[in-house]
Amino acid sequence: MRIDIISVVPKLMESFFAHSILKRGQEAGHVEVVLHDLRDYSVNKHRQVDDYAFGGGAGMVLGIEPIARCIRALQSERTYDEVIYMTPDGETFNQRIANQLSLGGNLIFLCGHYKGVDQRVRDLFITREISIGDYVLSGGELAAAVCADAIIRLLPGVLNDETSALTDSFQDNLLAPPVYTRPAEFEGSKVPEILLSGHEAKITDWRFSQAIERTRTRRPDLLEGME
């Protein structure tokens, strides 16, 4: 998979993709993440990419020309499954969407900034609009990084244990069960005996029942479609 991220502040994301699982995934060749500075596609010598909104009002708007140049340059080199705009009014990102996007080959993420982008960008170039929650950030960079992380960890070979992602929260509409590690007892608080039993089938049953109970208590809305 290749993920291209278009931003006015790409350096903000460099560190995010340079460590841990995301770094290993790139080094192993499972994914390529390319950050693009929108100012490199500016149409004027001052590298300006924003302007005042027609009709007045506070805040600046990212113009269509540099964005069109960047997206078209990328699309001339390869085919993209989705061109995604990160925006508070997009569909709310969840594990189902992450699973869908992880099956693709190439993705573009466009990060909004200021008061957003010229509506014509959304009309002409964007194939999907995504939000990570009902709040507003200074820009779409953190949101794009969150989505990319959730997608990349699902790619075959990225995680050392490929079954790990399948037991994460929200897979099968369940929250993950509690987990424990050594020591088996800490200040009188003990690990459940079943986890020390070595009985794989009983441990699996226990974890499933715990996942159901945790979901019922904390996110009962996730169980509505299962019951």
Rank of each mutant, 00 (worst) to 15 (best):
S164F: 04
S164L: 05
T167G: 10
D161A: 07
S169T: 11
E162C: 05
G116Y: 04
G116D: 04
N160Y: 10
G139R: 00
I97V: 10
D123Y: 05
D172C: 02
L166I: 10
R122D: 12
I130P: 10
T127H: 10
D149P: 00
S102P: 01
G157I: 06
Q171H: 15
D161P: 06
Y80F: 15
R128I: 01
R96E: 12
A150L: 01
Y114N: 06
I130Y: 09
Q95K: 08
E141T: 00
P178D: 12
G139V: 09
V179A: 13
Y114F: 03
Y85F: 08
T163V: 09
H113L: 07
R120W: 13
G133T: 02
I97G: 04
A98P: 07
F125D: 12
G112M: 10
R182L: 10
A165L: 01
D161W: 08
S169K: 04
T92D: 15
Y180P: 06
F170T: 13
E185W: 03
A143Q: 01
L142N: 04
H113W: 08
D89C: 11
G157P: 04
Q100R: 15
I97Q: 09
E162P: 02
Q95W: 11
I130F: 09
V179E: 14
Y180H: 07
E82N: 04
L107K: 02
L154H: 07
L124E: 15
D89I: 14
I97F: 13
I97M: 14
L107R: 05
S164W: 03
Y85S: 01
L124H: 14
Q100N: 13
Q100F: 10
L101W: 03
I132E: 00
L166Q: 14
L175R: 11
Q95C: 03
F186C: 14
L124W: 12
R96T: 14
G105T: 14
L103E: 13
F109I: 02
L142W: 01
D89F: 14
A143H: 10
I151E: 00
D168N: 03
